[in-house]
Design a protein around this nucleic acid. Structure first.
Lengths: 135, 135
DNA sequence: TTACAATTGATAATTATTATTAGAAGGGGT
DNA sequence: ACCCCTTCTAATAATAATTATCAATTGTAA
């Protein structure tokens, strides 16, 4: 894999963001630095980078994929309202894949724990809206 | 919500299947009984039925949604190869949402544990193919 | 039985993503 | 520096899954 300039910028933008960005969010950011880049290039390189294990790919519930600068195994929570994704501190030792394995004859290669809820920003907004309605 | 005939058949087919079917799989089945039904109706009713809490909606990793006749809280494993989904026996008491809750100010409404791997049928097929290659 | 809302089938539109393709660019080996 | 080979890119088309639109139909309830 060649570390091209587009690849480099995509990677840097994702890492600097410290967020779980989707391909199109990243595309918007990268375009500011490299205006002629194509959305397909962003998709392609995110795929390549995640295959190479340099970034993580998050396949969150029925939504756009998001990409993660942090590749150590960890779990996530996402907001049902604004779809942002955050890391959670969940003790992965609590889960023992070997125990589940026998279940249906699956050969288990991984697992993830996914919490969902409403993030603090969305709750604030909701409250503000409700207060507004009262007036 | 009116229990229309299409609604009834969709529900019955899902329940009788004892599987985690996708909208189009269910469409194929329902069409055999009610040939003029529209795919949109299947989508619409699966949505309605799951909103009403009569069936469950499975939003598995970056894939087609699947629907579940079994609404009691439980977790799933899916096959990376053929994309089938099975239930797993996972002790949900191991996870304490309240502990995670404080983390980022989220109000947690649920969580799921999702295993992935290769199902026994796909492993058999893989083995068969390998044996074939040897000859 | 009339009137109104819910539902349907057909189809168009949308969203997210992947595939295609022709051309450009990087990096040896000579 | 020049050629060759592979990788990569931009632009665009294609695809897959789902949702929206809308006119026609059906069920329900006054």
């Amino acid at each position: 894999m060649r570390m091209t300039s587009q690849r480099e910028i995509i990677l840097k933008e994702l890492q600097d963001s410290h967020q779980h960005l989707s391909a199109d969010e990243l595309y918007e950011r990268v375009k500011k630095i490299m205006p002629r880049i194509s959305l397909a290039t962003v998709y392609r390189n995110l795929e390549t980078l995640s295959e190479a294990g340099i970034i993580g790919k998050l396949e969150i519930s029925g939504r756009q994929k998001r990409f993660d600068f942090d590749i150590h195994p960890h779990d996530h929570i996402y907001c049902l309202q604004c779809h942002r994704v955050d890391n959670i501190d969940f003790d992965r030792n609590l889960v023992n894949p070997a125990e589940v394995a026998s279940d249906k004859g699956y050969q288990i290669t991984g697992y993830r724990v996914e919490f969902k809820g409403i993030c603090s920003a969305c709750r604030r907004n909701q409250k503000k809206r409700e207060d507004g309605d009262k007036k």
